[in-house]
Amino acid sequence: MSSLERLARYQRLVLDLVTDEGTDHYSHQFHPDLSPSGWHLGHCVFTENYWIREVIEAQPLAAANRDLYVPEFSYKPARGQQLPDFHDLIDWAGREQRENSRRLQQLQHNPRRHPLLRGGYLHDFLIQHYAQHYETLCYARAQRQLQQASAVPVRPLPVRRPNARDAVTLAGGDYAVGQTAPGRPYDNEHSRHTITLAGCRLAHRPLSNAEFFGFMEDGGYERRELWSDAGWHWLQTAAVARPGYWRCDDPGHYFQVSPAGAERLRPGAPVVGINYHEAAAVAAWAGARLPHEHEWEAATRSGLLQGRGQVWEWCANAFYPYPGFQAYPYDGYSLPYFDNAHFVLRGGSRYTRRVIKRPSFRNYYEADKRHLFAGVRLAWDSPPA
C-alpha cells in the first residue's frame, strides 16, 4: 500500500467515526479535557491544509478556520458552539481531504521537493496525527457512553494480588532506546542512544481487573501510606474510589464502559481508566513500583513483555528530552510538555492504531488524567526472596 493510500485510509477512518456520531453528538463536549468530535475532524483537516498548502505551497489559509481549529486560538469549552453545521462540516472535510491527496500526489513528482516530503515524512506525520485523534475520538465516545450506558448483568469480581514471582527479569546492562530512522518517529523519540540499566523484574502482563479490585477491597483508596503527597491531594479533591471506566449498579458488582457501551469486567483483563497517581498507589500496595520508560522499552525490545497494546502503561518518569533533542517539524508537539508535570505512558491501547504502536513511541499526560485507556505494569528492583 502506498503512502497516499495509507493516508486516505486514515482520513476515512476519522471522517467515518465523526459521521457516525451524527448531528446529536458531533458538537457536544462530553469531558472537560476532550473536544467535541466535530472539532477533531476539522482540526485534522485544517492540519493537512496547513502543512500542504500554507507551508509547502505558500498559500495562506482562512483566518476563521485557524481561529477555530488551532488549539492555542480556540477556547475548548466554546468549540462545539463554533462548529459549522454537521452536514456542511462532513462535506467540507471530505472535499478537502480528497483535494489534499491530489496535491500531495502532484508534489511527489516535483523534482525540487520540499524537505518535509523527503522520505515520505509528511505522509507519515499526517497519518500518525489522524491515528492519535482517532483514539482521542474513542475517548470522547467512551465518555458519552458513560453518561448513557445501562448496566449489564455482572458477577462479583474475584480478589487477586500481584505476585513478583510471576515477573520476568530484565538483566542489567546497556540497552539502545529511541529511534533514528527517517520518516515515522516523532521528535521526542530521536535519537537512538544507549542507556545503562541496573536490571529489574517486570510483570509479564499489565495489572488485571481482579488485582486492582484486590487493591480496592484492601482499602487502597483510603490508605494514606500508599499515596504520594500529590496523589493524596488529588484523591481528596477528586473523591473517587474506582477506575474511571468502572461503574457499579449494585454494591460490589462492577461493570466497565468502553466506546461500544457497557461491558462485563473480565477478571484477567487489564484494568483501564486509572491515572498516574492510582498507578503509583496500586504499585506501592503490591510492594512494587512503576517501571522507568527505559526499562519498559528495553524489556519490549528484548521480547520479555506480554499483553502489550491492550492499555497504555504508566511509567515512573516525567516526559523529558532525549540527548540532542531538536523540535521538528514545529515547536509545539513535544517542547511545551517537558515541564515535569507530564508523565510517560508506553505501549498503546485496544484503540491505538498500529502505526504508533512501536517500542519507541512516547505518550505523555498529566498525572491526574483518567479518561485515557491507561493501566499499569508493575516493576520490582530485584527478585523476590
Rank of each mutant, 00 (worst) to 15 (best):
A167G: 12
P60C: 12
I274D: 02
L378C: 01
L4C: 02
V154W: 10
A149K: 14
A238M: 03
P60H: 03
D174V: 08
E21Q: 15
V152A: 04
A63L: 14
R79F: 08
A284D: 02
A280K: 10
Q145E: 09
V355M: 06
A374R: 04
Y75D: 03
L197H: 05
D174A: 11
H277W: 08
Q11N: 13
A230D: 09
L345Y: 12
L170Y: 09
V70W: 13
Q105V: 10
R346P: 07
W227R: 02
N340K: 05
H253S: 03
E225H: 05
S228Y: 07
G173S: 12
E99R: 11
A327Y: 04
H129S: 13
A181L: 07
F46L: 09
G307K: 13
L157D: 09
W51D: 02
A269V: 06
F46W: 15
D174Y: 06
H294K: 03
D20L: 14
S360N: 07
G120Q: 01
H43L: 05
S2F: 06
R141F: 02
V168D: 15
P291C: 08
R155E: 14
A318Y: 00
E54Y: 09
R118D: 11
L15T: 05
F125T: 14
F213E: 08
I356S: 12
T352F: 05
H109F: 10
G119D: 14
Q310V: 01
R201Q: 15
E297G: 02
V18S: 06
D229Q: 01
L378R: 03
A63R: 06
Y365I: 05
E72I: 10
D368R: 07
A341F: 01
H87L: 03
H87T: 00
E57C: 14
R308Q: 01
L170P: 03
I90Q: 15
Q29I: 10
H129I: 15
E54S: 11
P111C: 03
Q326W: 09
H43A: 04
E263P: 08
A379Y: 04
G324L: 07
R53Q: 11
R95A: 12
K76A: 12
R113L: 11
G252F: 11
Y26C: 12
R224S: 00
C200A: 03
D85Y: 01
G332P: 02
Y175T: 13
R118P: 11
E313N: 04
L157F: 06
P84N: 06
P329Q: 11
F255I: 00
H133S: 10
N317V: 02
F319Y: 14
E72T: 01
H292M: 08
Y221L: 02
D249H: 04
D174K: 10
G173V: 10
R205F: 09
V159N: 13
H371S: 10
E278P: 00
